Amino acid sequence: MTDVLTSLTIAAPPERVWDVLTNFAAYPEWNTVISKARGELREGGELRFRIKIEATPEIGFSARIVRCEPGRELAWRGGAPLLPALAWGEHYFRLSPCEGGTLLTHGERFGGLLALLLRGPVHARVTRTYDGFNRALKARAE
Rank of each mutant, 00 (worst) to 15 (best):
M1G: 13
I10K: 04
R16M: 02
V17F: 06
V17S: 07
W18L: 07
N23L: 05
A25F: 02
Y27G: 01
Y27H: 05
P28L: 12
W30Q: 03
T32A: 11
V33C: 02
V33L: 11
S35R: 15
K36R: 14
A37N: 08
A37D: 02
L41Y: 05
E43T: 15
G45D: 06
E46L: 12
R48K: 10
F49Y: 15
R50T: 14
E54N: 10
I59F: 10
I59N: 12
S62F: 07
S62K: 13
P70W: 10
R72E: 13
E73N: 01
R77E: 14
L83F: 12
L83S: 07
L83N: 11
L83V: 11
P84E: 10
P84F: 08
A85W: 08
L86E: 03
A87T: 06
W88A: 12
G89M: 01
E90V: 02
F93V: 05
F93A: 08
S96H: 13
C98L: 02
G100C: 07
T102L: 09
L103H: 11
L103R: 15
L104R: 04
T105Y: 01
G107W: 08
G107T: 09
R109C: 10
G112W: 06
L113F: 15
A115Q: 08
L117T: 15
L117I: 06
L117P: 00
G120V: 03
P121H: 08
V126M: 13
V126Y: 07
T127M: 02
T127E: 14
T127D: 01
R128F: 00
T129P: 03
G132S: 04
F133P: 00
F133L: 14
R135A: 12
A136E: 15
L137M: 09
L137C: 05
K138S: 11
A141R: 07
E142H: 05
E142N: 05
